[in-house]
């Protein structure tokens, strides 16, 4: 009997733990989308007040904070530096595609980021700033969506974990 109780407790605990992990993953995406917005804001400051060229601005943004999204900026700077002949658009797109797997962002977010690269560096400052603002706006929308699905899924995963555990115990008993 004691063996059964301990076994059931272990099953319930591990299932709810799984649920908690999944629910935590849900909150990573909105958080990273927020980080991206902060980083873009920094990028805007770099190019408008310091008049930094792309490589410098990217490197500076990637150095601040130690987030997964910062990797994209670092990667883009690296690609640009290694191959000077490449356009900024290509370098950015490559960086986004390569780093996407390490973030919690989804396909839709990826396309927003790739879209940001289309005008990168090729226009005057006003155009650049408009492009940044536009991307930030799009990221804010994505964040809102991510937040909504987080609210829904977070509690769902948690309760699913606990309830699933209990269900397994009942079946096994």
């Amino acid at each position: 009997m004691l063996f059964k109780i301990v076994g059931s407790l272990v099953v319930i605990l591990s299932c709810s733990f799984l649920g908690f992990i999944l629910s935590r993953d849900c909150s990573r995406r909105p958080q990273q989308l927020r980080e991206l917005q902060t980083q873009l804001q920094m990028f805007e400051n770099q190019i408008s007040y310091l008049s930094d060229v792309l490589i410098e601005a990217f490197e500076r943004v990637s150095r601040v904070g130690n987030s997964e999204t910062g990797l994209i900026f670092g990667k883009a700077a690296e690609i640009l530096r290694d191959n000077g002949a490449q356009s900024a658009e290509n370098a950015w797109e490559q960086a986004v595609r390569q780093c996407m797997r390490r973030t919690a962002l989804n396909r839709e977010d990826e396309e927003v980021l790739v879209g940001f690269g289309k005008m990168l560096g090729s226009t005057e400052l006003d155009g650049q700033i408009k492009n940044i603002r536009l991307t930030m706006e799009a990221l804010r929308m994505q964040e809102k969506k991510a937040e909504e699905s987080r609210n829904k899924n977070e509690t769902m995963y948690k309760s699913l974990g606990i309830l699933g555990g209990i269900a397994v115990v009942i079946v096994l008993l």
Partner: peptide
């Protein structure tokens, strides 16, 4: 292409 590289892919910094 040359102009793009001369401006380090950052036309805005050279406007």
């Amino acid at each position: 292409l040359s102009l793009e590289m001369m401006s380090e892919n950052s036309i805005y910094a050279y406007q």
